[in-house]
Write a protein that binds this DNA or RNA. Structure first.
Lengths: 206, 206, 206, 206
DNA sequence: AATGAATGAGTGTTCATTCAT
DNA sequence: CATGAATGAACACTCATTCAT
């Protein structure tokens, strides 16, 4: 309306951003509780106080908000991992820092992911989402690099990355079910398990 | 009609059994591809060439086939694990046999589980199904028993069982994506990883 | 099979008749409990121990058995009414005998008609069935005849027959809900009501 | 937009009300023609030109419209009866006014209730609906009160109320089938019938 | 005839998405 | 941009009826 609107952030822009974020947060909670299929767009917007129409102003579809959510998770986690990777000097400290970071990350998001889920639906976490694929790639690259630098024995990279992610994911989930949440203990368990395992696993090529 | 009629099961009975199995197989495939929620009863029966009505002659609901499927998987796998458990003398041989059995089991079921899946859906496997819960319990009991007998160090049982199942599940899936499927190599990898890990993991209580 | 089968009633013919009647009885019970729409063919045959197929050997459709039922009721009640009509000398004795006959009839069929019914379904009785239409016509003719003979004042015949049938039907139903069933009292009530009413109602034509 | 906007209900609100009423009217017609069970939600909305979805925007279920319909009928008729009851000084004038009110009521609703009906289905009127139960109770209470005040002989209250309602209902229906509809004649007939009947009916207790 | 598995149109209901206001 | 009523394809499931045995 006023020509100032374009020059400063403006209430309008701020609300838009806030709404977009509110929908994302609500979606995370709802998908977490109900799973993708069972969750309805109405479930999501009900938590935001917005209207169905508004939802479609910000996201083109239910699917799009799901993907945005996945990306959101990855976008927040990847830099952490990246930073750890850059300053890693040995495999153990890298692994330890990475696992701890992941556990802290999911613990901080826990409340939006905890509630009961229909028996057939599996926790959606970020599994198989584009965002998580990126994290997976990141982890694999880190492992490859670490092996390259001779900090770890050369093993089946694909299996190892797969196994490590599986361990972190599931033990992380088990951790969240215990009260109180003990990130340190879970990290210790995983890191030891992986390190011990890595040194025992058969090496490949030359 | 023929005097053999009394000796053989009867064509009718045979068709019924075949149809029941066909629906189960179709359901396994469809749930595998689409996930429980997204899969429709029509998707399932379309593969069998039967009618919607026939579906409900054999199973009372979509949910019931799903459970039958889960039970079917568990019913076939549990006895294997049980037998291994009964004759296990040391942790390594038990673990090795168990993992190998599991990998052979999923490899034999592979073709019905392979197709592409929408981004948000996770492979349903048997995860969270009543049948798989039973398998999980079985594995945990085996681990507990093995620790009790002093064959393995006393560690966090819940985390360990969780981690082992996670490893087997995900590495198993990765194994199925490689051609040719090498059960032996995957088993070797997992067993070493777990054994190495177990000996490195912190022990608990006394 | 044998040529004797045609000559004597034969087990075959007997069973056929018995089955036909069994289905009719079961249908009366089921329609009585559930109403026409809610009742399923399976509900009916379940009570007979026969198969769905057998049902369609005896009746062409669910609708046909319903009509047969109505006719069955009417077939049994009409002769009674007819006999009363033939020997009626005055309106009161005719009315009294007719109402009593009707109440005894429904009392004897009570057990198959009593159970709870979904709130929206109305008691099916024979209302509006072809058979009951015939009974209605019969009653109207009797009333017309009685008026013609000068045994009752000339009143609006259509309204009177309608009203009398309504009274008998609803008071009959109320009667069945009381324990013990007192046919005499209900008959007395209805006959007095109608007779008193008839003499007070405006006469028509000349 | 216009300064009148605040003064009038708003077009949106008006359409909503109109739609709600349209569905109710269509439902009355369809239930009237087909009966509750046979009527489908699609039958109802087809008459309104709305979509299936719209139906569920206004009513939560098929059952709910049915109840709304019953309540709607009762809500409109009960106050009339109540008013008559309050100012009734003798049984005859009360009865006469009540029957006339009922006949006028059904005559005014006639067009939505007239069409042909499958043989097995009975006109649903309001029979057995929660709303009509209330009307029934009201009538019974009125009769009880009138007897208490000594304005009518003490007779079997339950049978009398039952019979009167039956008469009004069925004669009312017969009335609607005649052209032209003559409320006065039908009222006269019923009132005389009932009054004459009541004075002839056996009295009870002391 | 008798059987009961097979059929598929039809039911009530949900929900992602659109669009007039 | 926000709103929420309207839309209609889609779903799980039922049931009268058919038909191979």
């Amino acid at each position: 309306m006023s020509e100032l609107a374009v020059l400063q952030p403006g209430k309008r822009e701020q609300t838009k951003l806030a709404n977009r974020q509110a929908i994302l947060d609500a979606a995370r909670a709802v998908f977490g509780e109900l799973g993708y299929e069972a969750a309805t767009v109405r479930d999501i917007i009900r938590r935001t106080g917005l209207s169905v129409g508004a939802f479609y102003n910000y996201y083109r579809s239910k699917e799009e908000v799901f993907e945005a959510l996945a990306d959101d998770g990855a976008r927040r986690f990847r830099p952490i991992l990246q930073a750890l990777h850059d300053k890693a000097t040995d495999f153990e400290s890298y692994l330890s820092a990475g696992v701890r970071a992941y556990f802290e990350f999911i613990a901080s998001e826990h409340e939006t992911f905890s509630r009961r889920r229909p028996a057939h639906e599996v926790a959606p976490h970020f599994r198989n989402t584009p965002g998580m694929q990126a994290v997976f790639e990141e982890v694999r690259r880190a492992f490859a690099d670490v092996m390259e630098r001779g900090l770890a024995p050369k093993v089946d990279l694909d299996y190892l990355a797969t196994a490590c992610i599986a361990i972190a994911r599931e033990v992380g989930e088990a951790m969240l079910e215990r009260k109180p949440t003990d990130v340190e203990a879970a990290t210790e368990f995983c890191v030891r398990l992986i390190l011990g395992g890595v040194s025992a696993v058969p090496t490949v090529d030359g």
